[in-house]
Structures are given as C-alpha cells and as structure tokens.
C-alpha cells in the first residue's frame, strides 16, 4: 500500500491543514492591510477546498468534490478578485485602529480557540465507528474556533470591507464543520448555500461601495445616526 492511501496519513494531512486554516484566521485578526487580509482569506478558502478534497478521497464521497469545486470558484477566485477591485476603486488600503489592539486581539483569539476545544470535546463520540466523526475531532474544534474568531473580528473591526471578510471567514468555519462532521450537506443544500454566499457577498460589496461614496469613508462607526 502506498503511503498516501493510508487513512492515518489522510487524517494527519487534514489536521495539519486545519491548523494552518486556524493560523490564517488569527493572522487576519491582527492584519491591517486590506489586500493582505483578502489574500489570507483566499488562501484559507483554498486550504478548506483541499481539506474537502482529502475527505472526499479517503471516504469515497464524490459529492464533496463538488463542494470543493464550488469553494474554489466562489471563495478562492471570484470573491477575492471582486474585493481586490473594490479596494483599488475606493482607494483605501489600511484598516484604522481596531477597538481592541493587536496583542490583546491575539490573546482573545487564543481564548476563543480554547473555548472551541472545550465545546468540541463535549460533542466528541469516541465510541463511534470509523467515519466522519473520527475525522471530526480536531477539525470540529477548528471549525468552532473559526466561527468564534470570525464573530470577534466582526465586532472588533470598523472598516466595512473587513467586516464582510470576517463574515465570510465565519462561514468558512461552518463549511469546515459541515464537511468534517457529515461529509458535507446534501448536494442541493450545498449549492444553495454557495449561491446565497455569492449573492450576499455581491450585495455587501455594492453596499460597501455606496457607503464609501455617501460617507466618503468605509468606517462603519460613522453609521450612527439611527438611535432608539
């Protein structure tokens, strides 16, 4: 048997890529350059597509390949291209100071990862036979961590575009949970979700552009007229 056919090898590969996904997420928390954030997001999505391919290969689940292809098209190619164009059109390159500064942000991200492991541990079923659940142990924790850190990023960041990226990376966490727990959702649901993500991101990009034109800034803390 060749070494890459060993499920153990696959498992290690998945764990390693999931760890890199998490590292990228924490990097995005502290990143101030918009272009770098967008590329980190694209790389993260690419790694997730690789994880999906690996899971599909070792579990003979062909429909996960489709999810991986959708991921590649939508989140690795299309959306980053749209966002980079948007950045060059609105001529804002750098994030302003976030609410919580970088060192504390990293600590918060670390604590959230810890919390994610605690939650994932309570859902772990060691007595489950081999299958998606056995892959799910570490990856589920990473998925929950992505979700929580994405949530933190949305609250912490003030540029409209960074908030959109945070929302999308939070959705990456859900994607990871779905493929690692259950071999992905049924096909029709998968396609629908990607369609929603695509349309949603486009709508948000238009909104970002219009906010920039109207307020001459992308700083969402200027959006504070409506009260009560």
């Amino acid at each position: 048997m060749l070494f890459w056919q060993d499920p153990q090898f696959g498992n290690r590969m998945i764990t390693m890529m999931a760890a890199m996904v998490l590292v990228l997420q924490i990097m995005m928390v502290t990143q101030r350059w918009l272009i770098t954030s967008i590329r980190a997001f694209a790389l993260q999505s690419f790694l997730l597509a690789c994880i999906a391919n690996t899971i599909a290969y070792y579990n003979n689940a062909p429909h996960i390949y489709a999810a991986a292809v959708l991921m590649l098209l939508v989140k690795v190619i299309l959306l980053p291209v749209v966002f980079e164009r948007l950045v060059s059109r609105i001529e804002i390159r750098q994030e302003i100071e976030p609410l919580v500064n970088a060192p504390i942000s990293v600590i918060v991200a670390g604590l959230l990862t810890l919390l994610a492991y605690v939650v994932a541990e309570s859902l772990h079923r060691p007595d489950e036979p081999m299958g998606p659940a056995s892959l799910g142990h570490n990856t589920l924790a990473v998925a929950i961590a992505l979700f929580l850190i994405g949530f933190f990023m949305m609250v912490n960041r003030r540029k409209a575009l960074t908030q959109v990226l945070a929302l999308l990376s939070l959705e990456n966490g859900i994607f990871l949970a779905a493929i690692s727990l259950t071999y992905g959702m049924p096909m029709i649901v998968e396609i629908g979700i990607f369609f929603d993500v695509l349309v949603g991101a486009m709508v948000l990009a238009i909104l970002v552009f219009r906010i920039r034109e109207t307020f001459d800034s992308m700083d969402v803390s200027r959006l504070s007229r409506l009260k009560g």
């Binding site: 949603g200 709508v203 007229r225």
Partner: peptide
C-alpha cells in the same frame, strides 16, 4: 440613513 439601516440589517442578519 437608509444605507446605515441596510448595513445593520445585512450584518446582524448575516451573523
């Protein structure tokens, strides 16, 4: 103000 409302709607709704 409608942009502000839409942004809140999209972001809070999205999360």
């Amino acid at each position: 103000t409608s942009l502000e409302a839409a942004w809140k709607y999209a972001m809070i709704g999205g999360v």
